[in-house]
């Protein structure tokens, strides 16, 4: 029994409340570093606000976003009762923005989240196992890379027809190659490092090395990249909606609102088209800021600077 004592000890140490405390301290420390990055904090704040507003849309939206009012059309910013004005069909723009955030955020966040694990598996396969499977994966990605992202999305829409699901599938397909490539490159760099060699000598098999050693180091890269990519996906999704490939009227969506507003640009109502686009820009940039902040946080070199 004596032999097992050290094992028991480590277990006890791990369960010791102080150890748990330490972990908390680490999070706290990370937060302390993170909160110094003003842009990243700002990004996080904007994202949280956007998410909260979208979630609470039924409660906080002042009007029904889809009910037209024939008597009021194209009112400007600052009209009594309609802070951001009214669009060409007499719908309250603020309410439509609030509801539109739901589609816009969902069409960006859902695809990236879905592709997260898939790109991890593909990237690890191609980067660590290599061989024929890896080669096939990389060549397939090459084909996807040879389409400008928007074009690939258009192909998907041509096949599936317009709809929210179409936008999500397009985003998945266009973002997957980029995410996989990030996993692939960091896997390739990680696998040549000494600690992998050490793990091999200690008798770890390929599966263990891939998932226990490489994966944790690759995941942080992917998290950082994906965060920024959500912003890109949002702009892309809005673009597809703008082309009429996304949500169908009367549902509100920031991209669709822009294209609807474009038709009344010459009627002296630029705000109908420009406000939603501005919101897209701000929220997408917020994701970018957050991504940059996370990158600096995970990169110890940058952190000490």
């Amino acid at each position: 029994m004596e032999k097992f004592e050290p094992v028991l000890e480590t277990k006890q140490v791990l369960q010791h409340p102080l150890v748990f405390d330490r972990k908390e301290n680490k999070l706290k420390k990370l937060w302390n570093v993170f909160k110094k990055d003003k842009l990243a904090v700002m990004g996080l704040f904007i994202i949280l606000v956007a998410a909260a507003v979208s979630l609470l849309a039924p409660i906080i939206a002042p009007y029904d976003p889809n009910i037209s009012n024939g008597s009021k059309r194209l009112l400007g910013i600052g009209t009594a009762g309609h802070i951001l004005g009214v669009d060409e069909q007499g719908r309250d723009i603020l309410s439509r923005l609030i509801w539109g955030g739901r589609t816009s955020l969902l069409t960006a966040v859902v695809p990236i989240t879905c592709m997260f694990s898939l790109s991890l598996i593909l990237g690890l396969l191609a980067g660590y196992w290599g061989g024929k499977t890896g080669e096939v994966i990389m060549r397939l990605l090459d084909v996807l890379f040879s389409f400008p992202t928007v074009l690939l999305a258009i192909v998907v829409s041509a096949i599936m027809g317009a709809g929210v699901l179409t936008i999500m599938v397009s985003c998945c397909l266009t973002m997957l190659p980029y995410m996989t490539r990030v996993v692939y490159t960091s896997t390739v760099t990680e696998k040549t490092k000494e600690y992998i060699e050490a793990a091999k000598i200690l008798g770890a098999n390929k599966l263990q090395i891939a998932f226990k050693e490489i994966l944790p180091n690759v995941v942080s890269d992917l998290i950082v990249y994906s965060t920024s990519l959500i912003g890109v996906a949002m702009v892309l999704g809005a673009g597809l909606s703008f082309l009429g490939l996304g949500v169908q009227p009367p549902t509100a969506d920031w991209g669709k609102m822009t294209s609807d507003g474009m038709k009344v640009l010459t009627l002296g109502a630029p705000h109908v088209a420009t406000i939603p686009g501005l919101i897209i820009l701000i929220v997408a940039t917020a994701f970018n800021w957050l991504g940059d902040g996370l990158r600096d946080l995970f990169d110890p070199h940058k952190r000490t600077q």
Partner: peptide, 22 residues
């Protein structure tokens, strides 16, 4: 430049058209 990387192109096109053409 930070914003530039996330500009929705269609939106910027509209803004430019509004300012410089209309």
């Amino acid at each position: 430049a930070q914003f530039g990387a996330n500009v929705p192109v269609f939106w910027l096109a509209i803004v430019l058209m509004w300012i410089f053409s209309i």
